[in-house]
Design a protein around this nucleic acid. Structure first.
Length: 1161
RNA sequence: GCGCGCGUAGCUCAGUUGGUUAGAGCGCGUCGCUGAUAACGACGAGGUCCCCGGUUCGAAUCCAGGCGCGCGCACCA
C-alpha cells in the first residue's frame, strides 16, 4: 500500500446546502452539463420536450416537482448513453401578461388600453414577460435542473410565430379554420371573453332575482305559460320557450288570479306551496303537444318591429320565426316551472336551439339572433326604455315593468353561484355571442383517439380515462382572442369581396404585390432602436401591413384583428421551437416526436391536448382520410410517446383556531397560539401564502432533500403534500444515512492509509470493477468473504432493478430499491464489518477486501443516485476519486451502472436475509426476557422450517454469535421442545382443487398435531385425509407449515424460523457481562474526553466491589483490546485525574482515563 | 348532473393475477446499542382496510349501490 493519504475523514457537521452550492459552482466552472451532452454526441437521441412555463409569476413549489421529474429522466438517459438535448422554453403570450401590464399602468379594460395606445401597450407586455425570469432561472438552476436556458424557445419570437403561422396556414388551406359564432362568458367591462379556467376561478354565491313570468298563449284566452328565470335582463331578447317533449304539463286554474297557467305537472304542488296560490289542475298534456304553440313575448321591443312577419320554411309554407314553443331535452323539473325562456344571445344551449331552428327555414339567418345588449353590457337602442343601462342594474326596473304589465306571476330571491371576473371581482360575467375563429378539431376526433391509444401514459388510466374522455367530447377549438398581446391570426381579408388568405411567414407577406404599411414598424424602430425586432410580427405593426387583393381590382387585403389562444402557441412547440419548417428541418426531424414529457394533471386539457390536437391535424390524418384508407403522415404516437402526469402539490400550514392567523411551521403556531391551532392541508394559494418558497427550502435543507422527498415518498401521480417536516426527514432517512456510511469509511481509510485505487498506475476512467481490479490489493469478488460477496451481489441486483424500473419510468420504485440498498449497506454490511476495519493488521487481505468492497459500493451508489440527488452524488464522487489521474471529473459524465459486470447471487441474498431474520428474532427474544445484548448468553437454538440452509448457516455462526452475543448456536429442523407446528392448507394451490371443502380441510389439519402430520408426510411423501367421505391426498406442496414458539420459552418466531434462547446465566457469563459494561463506559469516556481514534489510554476503575474487580481483572485483556487501553488500575489514581461517577452493574464506580504513549503490554 | 382519480395505523403512503397473521417510514412509548454519534437497532401500542350488499371455499383486492375528498367537464334557463 502506498503512503499517500487518499481519503480524509469527512467533517461531521456537513451542511448539505453549502455542499450543493459548491457543486453548482463546480458544474458551472467545468461546463459539466455541456460536456455530458458532448460525450453522447453519437448516442441514440432521447427526446425531451419542455412544456413552457409562463415566466409571468414566481415559481412555486409545485413547479419544483415538475422540474425535478423533468430533470430526472433526461439525466438518467444521458448516463445510459443517450443524447438528450434539453431546450428550455417560455410561454410569453396571453391575458395574464396583459393584466400585469394593466395593473402596472393602473388601467382597466379594453377601452383604456386603446386610449393608452396598443403600440405602447404591446411593448410593455413584451418587456413585462421577463419580469420574473431571473427568479425562474435561479430556481431552475438551484434545483439542479439541467436544461439549456441559453437556447430557450420563446413564443413571441418571430421565428416561433412564423412556425405557428405556417401551421395555421396549413390548416386554413385544408379548410379547417372557419369563422363562427360562439356564446362566451364575457367580461363586459374589460371587453373580453374569459377561458373556462378563468371563469371557474370566479364563481361566487350571490342572491339574484328569481322571476316567474307569464307568456300568454296566442289563441288561448286567459292562458299563459309560466317560465322562470334568474336573469330578467335577458327577457327583452327572448326568442323561444322550451319544454321537454317527454314531460307532462298541467293546465292549472289559478284561483288567486283567476287565470289558467301551464307548468310542469310534477311541480304543481311545490309551486302552489311556494307561491301560496291555489292551483287546480284542469288538464294534462305532454310537452310535445305544446310544441309549436305561439305566445306573446314579455317585451314588445322586437315584436313591434318584426310583428307577425313570416319566413319561408324548407318544408314548404311559412311560419313566424320567433316566440314559439320548442322542444328541448335539457329541460328538467329540477328547478323553475319546467318551461324555459330562451334567449339565444345569452346562453350556449339557447344558441344551439336557434341553430337547430334555423335548419327549418330557407334563409340561413332566420330566425335572427335577437340581442338587445351591446358588447359593453349595456342595453342598445333595440330596447329604448333602457338604452345605456348596465344589464344587471336593470333587473329591478324590469321586474317593476313586468309587474305593471301584468306579466309577473311570482318573484323571489334566489341564491346561486354566479361567475365574476377573476381579476375585477365586482364585475359579473355575462354570456354573450361573439364572432370567433374555430379550428375543426372535430374532424380529427377519431384520429386523436387513435393517436392517444398509442401514448404511454403514467398512470395508465389517464389515456382511456380522463384524457380519452376529454377527446371523446371534443368540440371545435375556439382559437381567436380579441386581445392585443398574442400571436396574430395570420389571415388577410379582401376589403371588397371578403375573400381570405392565410400567410405562412413574414417574408411571404412582404413579397405580396403592392405591400404597404411596413413603414409603420420601420419608423417605430427608427424612433426607438431598442425595440426587439420580433415585435414586427405583432400588433399593431402587423395590422398595418396590407397588400393588393387578387380577388378584386383595386381592393386591399387587410389582416383580421384577432390574436390566437396562447394554448395554441404552446401546443405548436414541437415544431415551433425550431422555427420549422422555415428553418432547422434537421433538428425538428431528429427531435420529433418526444420520448418523454411530464406536467401536472391540470395540463390534460391544456398542453397535453393542444400538442396532440395540433400534431394530429398537421402530421396525422383526418377521420375521413382514415376511413378512406389514407394513413397518417407520421406513425402514431406523436408528438409525445410517454407522459408522466403529475399529481397536484398541496400545501400544509397551521392556523389559529379562529382561522385569523396562519403559520408555515408548527413551532410558529405554538409560539403564537399555544395549543390553540389546527393543521390544514389544501391547495396552494398565492393569496393565502400558505407555502414556503422553494428558495427557503434550498437554503435550509438543500435541493437534494427536496428532490428525494418528491421522488421517494409517493408515486408521482399522487397528489403530494409540500410538508417542510417531511422534506427535512428525507435528509436523515436517506441522505444523511448514506453520508454517515461514507464518513465511516473515510475515517478508517484515513487512519489506515487505505489508498487502494491509487495503486492503479493508469487507465482509470469511470472506476468500474474492471478498472479497480487492476489494483494490487483488489481481490476478485469470489475470493472475498461471504459478507463481501453478498454486498456485491445486492449491489448488482440493485443496479439491475433500478435500470429495469427507470427504463419504464418507474422512478418511485427505483427509489424504494435504492433506499433498501443503502439501508442494507449501512445497517448490515457496515455493522457486521466494523471490526474488520479496526483490525490491527492493515495489510490483511480481509481488511483490504472490506475497504475495497465498501469503496466499490460507494462508487456504484454515487452513479446510481446521480439522476436523483445529483449534488450528493457529485460530492460523493469527488471524495471517492480523490486526486486519481484520469478519472472523469463528474459522476454525471459516467455511464449508469447496469449491474452487468457482477451477477447477483439470488441464493446468497436469500440466505443472508434469513440470517438477518435470525439475528432480528434473537434480539426480539432477548427483549422479551429482558436480557440486554451486552449480557453474554450460553446458547441459542434456531429451528428452521426446512433444513436446506443449515449447512450454510453453520458457516456463519460467527455473525449470529456476535450479533446476539452468545457463545454457541444450534440449528435444527423438525421437532423441538420449544416449537410447535401448525399445518395449514396451501390455499392458493388447494383452492381450485377442493373448492368448498377448503374450510373443513383447514379445520381437520388444525385438529391434528402438526408434528404427527409432518412425520407422516416425511415418511410417505403424502398424507391422506377423508373429508365428507371423499379421500384427499396432499403432498408437501399442498400444505404450509407454520412454526410457533411454545409458551414459556424465551423464543421468537418469524416466517421461516424460531429462535430460542438459553437464558441460564452462569457466574462466568455474568462476569463477562460486567466486562462488556465496563468497555462501554470507557468508550463513552474516551469520547467525552475527546480522545483521538488511535489514542492509547490508561484506565482507572475505582470503588468496584471485590467480585466485580475480579471479573474485570479476569477480562482485562478483552477490555484493553476493545478500548485501546494499555492497563487497568483499581486504585491509586493520579491526584489530578478527572474521575466520572458511573453505574456498573448494580454498583457505583468512578472511572478515569489518561492518554499515554506507552504501548500495550 | 356526468367523467376520472382517491379513501388502508395519529400523519404520509405501499399492498402483485383474490389466498386466510395487511406492511413501511415518520410520530409516540419502552428498552437496547454505542470509536458512523446532529446517528443506529429492537420491541410495543395504534386498523370497522369509508359504508352497505353481492360473487367466492376465501375479498383491502372483483362486481353493484351509497358516502366523503380532489380534479375536470357540463349545467346554473
Amino acid at each position: 500500500m502506498t503512503d499517500l493519504t487518499m481519503f480524509h475523514a469527512v467533517k461531521q457537521d456537513t451542511k448539505f446546502p453549502q455542499l450543493e452550492e459548491q457543486v453548482l459552482a463546480f458544474w458551472k466552472q467545468n461546463n459539466i452539463y455541456q460536456r455530458s451532452l458532448d460525450l453522447r454526441k453519437n448516442g441514440k437521441p432521447f427526446v425531451f420536450f419542455e412544456g413552457p412555463p409562463t415566466a409571468n409569476g414566481l415559481p412555486h413549489p409545485g413547479h419544483c416537482l415538475t422540474r425535478a421529474i423533468k430533470d430526472l429522466f433526461p439525466r438518467y438517459r444521458t448516463m445510459r448513453g443517450y443524447l438528450c438535448e434539453r431546450k428550455a422554453g417560455w410561454d410569453t403570450h396571453g391575458l395574464p401578461v396583459e393584466v400585469e401590464v394593466c395593473k402596472e399602468l393602473g388601467i382597466h379594460g379594453k377601452e383604456e388600453i386603446e386610449s393608452y395606445g396598443i403600440e405602447g401597450f404591446v411593448q410593455k407586455c413584451q418587456q413585462s414577460v421577463w419580469r420574473y425570469m431571473q427568479e425562474w432561472e435561479r430556481v431552475t438552476e438551484r434545483l439542479g435542473f439541467w436544461i439549456d436556458l441559453s437556447q430557450a424557445y420563446v413564443t413571441y419570437h418571430q421565428s416561433y410565430i412564423e412556425s405557428v403561422w405556417w401551421s395555421l396556414k396549413t390548416l386554413f388551406d385544408k379548410g379547417l379554420l372557419y369563422r363562427g359564432h360562439k356564446i362566451v362568458w364575457w367580461w363586459a367591462q374589460g371587453g373580453t371573453a374569459l377561458s373556462s379556467g378563468e371563469v371557474g376561478q370566479g364563481y361566487r354565491q350571490v342572491a339574484d332575482p328569481s322571476v316567474y313570468v307569464r307568456f300568454p298563449l296566442e289563441g288561448e284566452p286567459n292562458t299563459s305559460l309560466v317560465v322562470w328565470t334568474t336573469t330578467p335582463w335577458t327577457l327583452p331578447s327572448n326568442q323561444f320557450a322550451a319544454v321537454n317533449p317527454e314531460l307532462e304539463y298541467a293546465y292549472c286554474f289559478d284561483e288567486t288570479s283567476s287565470e289558467t297557467i301551464v307548468i310542469a305537472k310534477a311541480l304543481v304542488e311545490s309551486l302552489s306551496e311556494k307561491t301560496k296560490r291555489k292551483l287546480a289542475i284542469v288538464k294534462v298534456v305532454v310537452g310535445s303537444e305544446l310544441v309549436g304553440k305561439f305566445y306573446v313575448p314579455p317585451f314588445d321591443c322586437y315584436s313591434k318591429q318584426l310583428g307577425h312577419a313570416e319566413a319561408r320554411l324548407k318544408s314548404g309554407g311559412s311560419q313566424r320565426p320567433c316566440w314559439r314553443v320548442v322542444a328541448a331535452n335539457f329541460v328538467t323539473i329540477d328547478s323553475g316551472t319546467g318551461l324555459v325562456h330562451l334567449a339565444p344571445a345569452f346562453g350556449e344551449v339557447d344558441y344551439e336551439v336557434l341553430t337547430e331552428e334555423r335548419l327549418r327555414f330557407v334563409e340561413p339567418s332566420v330566425p335572427p339572433l335577437l340581442c338587445a345588449v351591446g358588447p359593453n353590457g349595456k342595453f342598445t337602442a333595440d330596447f329604448p326604455s333602457h338604452e345605456g343601462v348596465w344589464v344587471k342594474d336593470a333587473d329591478k326596473t324590469l321586474q317593476r315593468f313586468l309587474k305593471d304589465a301584468g306579466k309577473l306571476w311570482h318573484q323571489e330571491q334566489y341564491l346561486h353561484d354566479y361567475p365574476f371576473c377573476w381579476r375585477a371581482s365586482e364585475d359579473p360575467l355575462i354570456q354573450y355571442p361573439r364572432e370567433s375563429w374555430f379550428i375543426r378539431t372535430t374532424k380529427f376526433r377519431d384520429s386523436m383517439l387513435e393517436n392517444n391509444k398509442t401514448i404511454g401514459w403514467l398512470p395508465e388510466h389517464i389515456g382511456p380515462g380522463r384524457f380519452g374522455n376529454f377527446l371523446e367530447s371534443n368540440v371545435d377549438w375556439a382559437l381567436s382572442r380579441e386581445r392585443y398581446w398574442g400571436t396574430p391570426l395570420p389571415i388577410w381579408v379582401c376589403d371588397q369581396t371578403s375573400q381570405m388568405e392565410a400567410i405562412g411567414c413574414y417574408e411571404e407577406l412582404i413579397a405580396k404585390p403592392g405591400v404597404q404599411g411596413t413603414e409603420v414598424w420601420a419608423n417605430a424602430k427608427k424612433a426607438n432602436p431598442e425595440l426587439e425586432d420580433d415585435l414586427r410580427v405583432h400588433k399593431p405593426y402587423i395590422d398595418a401591413v396590407t397588400y393588393d387583393s387578387p380577388y378584386a381590382p383595386g381592393a386591399r387585403m387587410r389582416r383580421v384583428t384577432e390574436v390566437i389562444d396562447c394554448w395554441y402557441d404552446s401546443g405548436a412547440m414541437p415544431f415551433a421551437q425550431w422555427g420549422y419548417p422555415h428553418k432547422n428541418a434537421e433538428s425538428f426531424n431528429s427531435q420529433f416526436p418526444s420520448d418523454f414529457i411530464s406536467e401536472a394533471i391540470d395540463q390534460t386539457r391544456g398542453w397535453f391536448y393542444s400538442q396532440l390536437a395540433i400534431s394530429t391535424m398537421l402530421f396525422g390524418a383526418s377521420d375521413e382520410d382514415t376511413k378512406n384508407g389514407k394513413i397518417a403522415e407520421r406513425a402514431y404516437p406523436h408528438p409525445f410517446k410517454n407522459c408522466i402526469v403529475l399529481g397536484l402539490m398541496l400545501a400544509e400550514w397551521y392556523e389559529s383556531k379562529d382561522g385569523k392567523q396562519r403559520f408555515l411551521t408548527e413551532e410558529e403556531a405554538k409560539t403564537a397560539c399555544g395549543t390553540d391551532y389546527v393543521v390544514k392541508t389544501g391547495k396552494m394559494s398565492k393569496q393565502l401564502r400558505n407555502y414556503r418558497s422553494p428558495q427557503e427550502i434550498f437554503d435550509k435543507y438543500g435541493a437534494d432533500a427536496l428532490r428525494w422527498y418528491l421522488f421517494y415518498n409517493q408515486a408521482p401521480w399522487n397528489s403530494i403534500l409540500y410538508s417542510e417536516r417531511a422534506i427535512r426527514d428525507s435528509i436523515s432517512e436517506f441522505i444523511l444515512r448514506l453520508w454517515n456510511s461514507v464518513s465511516f469509511f473515510s475515517i478508517y481509510a484515513e487512519i489506515d492509509g487505505f489508498a487502494g485505487p491509487s495503486e492503479i498506475a493508469s487507465g482509470l476512467d469511470q472506476l468500474t470493477s474492471e478498472e479497480l481490479s487492476r489494483a494490487k490489493s483488489y481481490r476478485p469478488i469470489e475470493q472475498r468473504s461471504e459478507l463481501d460477496r453478498w454486498m456485491m451481489s445486492e449491489l448488482a441486483a440493485t443496479c439491475r432493478d433500478v435500470v429495469e424500473r427507470m427504463d419504464r419510468y418507474d422512478s418511485y420504485g427505483a427509489c424504494q430499491t435504492l433506499h433498501a440498498f443503502v439501508d442494507a449497506m449501512s445497517n448490515w454490511y457496515i455493522r457486521r464489518s466494523r471490526s474488520r476495519y479496526w483490525a490491527a493488521d492493515k495489510q490483511s487481505a480481509d481488511k483490504l477486501d472490506a475497504y475495497w468492497t465498501l469503496y466499490e459500493s460507494f462508487v456504484v451508489v454515487a452513479k446510481l443516485i446521480a439522476p436523483f440527488t445529483p449534488f450528493l452524488a457529485e460530492s460523493l464522487w469527488k471524495l471517492l476519486k480523490g486526486d486519481l489521474a484520469g478519472v472523469r471529473d463528474s459522476v454525471h459524465l459516467c455511464d449508469f451502472p447496469d449491474g452487468g459486470a457482477i451477477a447477483p447471487d439470488a441464493e446468497l441474498n436469500a440466505r443472508m436475509s434469513l440470517l438477518r431474520e435470525i439475528a432480528s428474532l434473537g434480539r426480539s427474544a432477548r427483549m422479551d426476557s429482558k436480557l440486554k445484548v451486552r449480557q453474554p448468553l450460553q446458547r441459542v437454538e434456531v429451528s428452521l422450517a426446512d433444513d436446506s440452509q443449515i449447512q450454510w448457516l453453520r458457516k456463519h455462526d460467527d455473525i449470529v454469535r456476535e450479533e446476539l452475543n452468545v457463545d454457541e448456536i444450534h440449528y435444527a429442523s423438525g421437532a423441538s421442545p420449544f416449537v410447535e407446528y401448525q399445518v395449514q392448507p396451501n390455499f392458493r394451490r388447494l383452492g381450485p382443487k377442493v373448492g368448498p371443502l377448503l374450510p373443513k380441510l383447514k379445520q381437520q389439519l388444525g385438529s391434528v398435531s402438526g408434528a404427527t402430520l409432518l412425520e407422516e408426510l416425511t415418511a410417505n411423501g403424502k398424507i391422506t385425509l377423508v373429508l365428507d367421505g371423499k379421500s384427499i391426498e396432499l403432498d408437501c406442496e399442498d400444505i404450509q407449515v407454520r412454526m410457533q414458539a411454545k409458551a414459556g420459552w424465551a423464543a421468537a418466531q418469524g416466517k421461516l424460523c424460531v429462535v430460542a434462547l438459553n437464558t441460564e446465566l452462569t457466574d462466568a457469563l455474568i462476569r463477562r457481562g460486567i466486562a462488556k459494561d465496563a468497555i462501554r463506559l470507557v468508550q463513552d469516556l474516551r469520547k467525552k474526553r475527546d480522545c483521538n481514534f488511535t489514542d492509547r489510554i490508561e484506565i482507572w476503575i475505582l470503588d468496584a466491589p471485590v467480585a466485580m474487580r475480579e471479573a474485570l481483572e479476569e477480562n482485562q485483556v478483552f477490555i484493553c483490546t476493545e478500548t485501546l487501553g494499555v492497563s487497568i488500575h483499581f486504585d491509586n489514581p493520579p491526584s489530578d485525574l478527572e474521575l466520572d461517577d458511573c453505574e456498573l452493574g448494580d454498583s457505583k464506580v468512578r472511572i478515569g482515563l489518561r492518554v499515554t504513549t506507552a504501548s500495550l503490554a
